[in-house]
Design a protein around this nucleic acid. Structure first.
Lengths: 318, 318
DNA sequence: CCTGCGGGGTAATACGTAGTACGCTGGTAC
DNA sequence: GTACCAGCGTACTACGTATTACCCCGCAGG
């Protein structure tokens, strides 16, 4: 039983070259001895670590947590493992970690709403896939947020809302820009000037969201409806409304994005644009995996859907 | 410029053996050529992958997300990298992944409220640290949840609450057991029978939490106060109360655990037991790191603290 | 009897690093 | 003049796997 034989049997590449009896003996011995192939040696020799790096903007945000879960599950199904890098909104903070991983530790990268370091664009660099961050010449997976946003705006319009405020994320991001762009388009299409609508900005921590909500609700030209870049921001608005005694949805209708669990637990439950983050993460890994196989997979755009709950009704009289 | 020289210079172990001029030349050449040491080769030769496996019960839960962040940040500071395995409450689902990683891919493991596979107890297995899951003969880091729980119960007692219901997590966990045990002790100390108190069980998804909340609130012997194993469960209770027209805190006082962001955004803001998940994650990594150095670090217990917000007042008359 | 061939298996090598042991040079002590 | 030492580097090997090239044996065809 040479080392070669063992390698051939355990890797499944020995079919036709190694007799069944020997193969069985090898497998039994491996089991009895508790033998496990060494990952580092295999990575060194084969040139593949069976691991992908995953750079995420904010691990603590439920949306990314679920995306992460989808990606990790898909990776495991293909025998791959996921190395996590939390960027924590720090532009470029993750770049150093990416550099460390670059050679030999992982086979490729997934960037969740984060930008890849410039060095990965160089020829010979490991492949990567962008998630919620479309860029020319880079493969990507993203959500078709436009359809959902248009549905939400149509819903508000049908209810009779003219003035639609906006709670924007201070942290940038293509998906936020897309949502905002559809809002602008909607207003223009109905003869409104987006610049005249009340718009406030917020980070994702509780204080910020509540402060932003208060700012919007106490504005002299308070709108009858508000689009929020995210369910978390929408919940801050709800909390502020509660503190100010502003009734939702009677006095202000609220729409969020993401359909997080909090959208069902909030008071009132949120009307929101639903996505499937697990599918997004899984699709991202699948794209990267195909690339690692040398294929040229097509970019993917996943659907969105409006979910109407209790936070939107027709504007009250006056 | 031999390969050895390069290795010595770049690893910093050449001080005193390699002249400054040569060292500088090596560094310049490395930079100009874009040379990066290969992680797999280094791991193979040195026997250390500079990576730790991290098994987490639920990546999508904000508490674990924050713990994860703390651990990942601490790891990065020591030049280590984190491999994520999401167990998703599936008992043993992660075991296979752990086996894959065992040899050569990671140097040790962190288990976040999950159980290590039995194979890791064997001699020669990589070291691990348990988080929120104390077991004899295994190093661990946990929260001193007892102090915070006692403070919460004392707070309710001071307000005049006698009947204290409980929303329990259906998913088991030591920390939940500890919370529950203090609640039982408190009731007994005041001459009550815990078995007679209204107790309901819930998973962490929105539907479950609301259903459990409804069950508790519609119970014929509805308590005047409720302890919830978690802020998420508390929010479900709030949502149920809202749907049923039960006023919080006037008719029912609510206390949660974890002090998640939603505890500030909820209506009313939650009285809850505060922890520092980032510190928990960082401490866990530090313990594991010390073990990897061959040290015998002491287990750590991190403090908890009651945060009183709007969900607790004295029971109303009748 | 020799040749060719297929089935079954193995020796040897390369992957890129870390570490060990050794070599060379020039100066100093005796 | 020899022995020793410090200061600087360098050949060489091991790490555990995947892969390539090769070897051995028995049998069929000529």
């Amino acid at each position: 039983m040479s080392q070669t034989t063992v390698s051939l049997v355990l890797s499944g590449k020995g079919v036709g070259r190694i007799s069944d009896a020997t193969a069985e003996a090898v497998r039994r011995a491996a089991r009895d001895l508790g033998y496990r192939p060494n990952a580092a040696a295999r990575a060194l020799r084969s040139g593949s670590a069976a691991a992908v790096g995953l750079v995420v903007r904010d691990v603590t945000h439920p949306f990314f947590g679920r995306t992460l879960r989808g990606a990790q599950r898909a990776a495991r199904e293909m025998g791959h493992v996921v190395v996590l890098i939390d960027d924590n909104y720090g532009a470029g903070v993750a770049d150093g970690a990416v550099e460390i991983l670059r050679e030999g530790a992982v086979d490729g990268f997934l960037f969740f709403a984060t930008d890849p370091p410039a060095s990965l664009r160089a020829p010979g660099a490991p492949p990567y896939v962008l998630v919620e961050n479309e860029q020319s010449r880079s493969p990507f997976v993203r959500l078709d947020v436009e359809t959902g946003t248009d549905a939400a705006l149509a819903h508000l319009h049908d209810l009779g809302h003219q003035e639609i405020g906006y709670v924007r994320s201070v942290v940038g991001g293509q998906t936020f820009d897309r949502r905002h762009a559809r809002w602008e388009a909607h207003l223009r299409a109905h003869g409104q000037d987006p610049a005249r609508q009340v718009t406030v900005f917020s980070a994702f921590d509780a204080e910020s969201t509540i402060a932003a909500g208060r700012e919007l609700l106490t504005h002299p030209r308070r709108p009858t409806a508000v689009l929020c870049d995210d369910d978390v921001l929408a919940c801050g608005l709800l909390a502020a409304a509660d503190a100010l005694g502003v009734r939702v949805p009677a006095e202000v209708a609220v729409v969020g994005f993401d359909d997080l669990d909090i959208a069902r637990l909030s008071h009132p439950p949120l009307t929101t644009v639903h996505f499937d983050p697990e599918a997004l993460g899984a699709a991202a890994f699948e794209l990267l995996y195909a690339r690692l196989q040398g294929k040229r997979p097509r970019n993917r755009v996943l659907p969105s859907e409006l979910v109407v709950r209790g936070s939107t009704v027709a504007p009250g009289p006056g």
